[in-house]
């Protein structure tokens, strides 16, 4: 069992008072906070069947112990409801997976933020928005769960700008970054099952940039739509350029996904096509980056050779998100990290 949590005396439970009390101690995200009173935290934990003081994960760089109670405190602060807690617990488990490389994600000068993607039944039962405006704003579950995850990174992991987060410019995705998969309009079934997590509900954490939009209003041909995605992927400005093992998350809107499916394209074919089309000239990449994390065979290529911006089609992840309209997005990776998908235990 972890040590009991510290308690603070405060004159008022006004959100502004909690924010100011916390800010004096270097805590909070700058916005008003819901007071984490014992009553509210107990209510957050009421449906939790596991030991609330059992460590779920230890998060770097602070080596903070994330118990369900600590997670619940941060959930209350962010405005979560109790039905969001299992998603947060799963997200913390995912963050602690070694392939995420959370120490690097938190400490880098890059503006990387963990994107939390909610899959399956809990996206519906707990009120997450997979449809119109899924990346926000407006939905309580998406907004509050993403914010709670950032508060856990600030408070438990110690990813405080200047102390545990060296991000040169920071970024808006570091306030809240949570979305649900649009399973109902995915022609290829759920993403989690496609990567071997056959759970009723699951979450994926991908540590990347904010979404880069691409639109196609006119095409029925998947190639024409996806060429625009490939264009967004081939940028010297993203870390995928110097890091060849980095992933891309390509968030297709339902209409773009339907166009691919109507033409008989599977999720894997979409990824393979993007892998073939998202290429850059090796000499241009070499000229731009003295420091590269490429495979040896890539270093051996001639300057005039063309090279995919990620080593393998498996690094290109296809998920259906959003509502009506023809806008999709590409989410480049920080690079030295891999996404993790884990089940949600309800």
């Amino acid at each position: 069992m972890a040590d009991p949590l510290e308690m603070l005396d405060i004159a008022s439970d006004d959100p502004e008072a909690v924010r100011d009390c916390y800010a004096e101690r270097g805590w909070g995200d700058g916005l008003p906070l819901v007071a984490p009173t014992p009553e509210r935290v107990d209510a957050m934990l009421a449906t939790c069947n596991a030991d609330p003081d059992e460590p779920v994960a230890v998060l770097p760089p602070r080596s903070g112990v994330a118990t369900r109670r600590v997670i619940a405190v941060n959930a209350v602060l962010a405005g979560c409801r109790p039905e969001h807690l299992p998603v947060l617990v799963a997200a913390v488990r995912a963050l602690a997976r070694p392939e995420i490389n959370l120490r690097g994600v938190n400490a880098t000068t890059h503006p990387v933020a963990p994107l939390l993607i909610v899959h399956g039944e809990i996206a519906q039962t707990a009120g997450y928005n997979p449809g119109l405006g899924a990346f926000g704003p407006g939905n309580v579950a998406n907004a509050a769960t993403g914010r709670a995850l950032r508060l856990i990174l600030l408070h438990v992991a110690g990813a405080v700008p200047g102390a545990g987060d060296a991000s040169t410019q920071g970024g808006p995705a570091k306030y809240t970054y949570c979305v649900a998969e649009n399973l109902a309009e995915s022609p290829w079934g759920g993403y989690a099952a496609s990567v071997g997590v056959a759970a009723v509900s699951a979450v994926t954490v991908h540590c990347g940039e904010a979404p880069h939009n691409f639109h196609d209003m006119e095409s029925k041909d998947p190639a024409a739509i996806l060429d625009k995605a490939a264009s967004a992927m081939t940028s010297l400005g993203s870390n995928n350029a110097p890091v060849s093992s980095g992933e891309f998350f390509v968030m297709l809107c339902p209409e773009h996904a339907a166009a691919c499916d109507d033409a008989g394209w599977t999720r894997d074919r979409v990824a393979s096509y993007l892998h073939e089309r998202a290429q850059m000239r090796v000499g241009d990449l070499r000229a731009a980056f003295a420091l590269r994390a490429w495979a040896p065979w890539q270093e051996a290529l001639d300057d005039d050779a063309m090279m995919s911006v990620t080593e393998h089609p498996c690094n290109i992840k296809i998920i259906v998100v959003g509502g009506p309209g023809k806008h999709s997005s590409v989410i480049p990776s920080w690079g030295m990290t891999r996404s993790a998908t884990v089940p949600v235990e309800v």
Binding site: E6, D9, S12, V18, G64, V65, V70, V73
Partner: peptide, 14 residues
Amino acid sequence: MRIYAPVGAVGPAA
């Protein structure tokens, strides 16, 4: 009134 601190314990140094 009393509220929780949000940071939790620090794990043992490895």
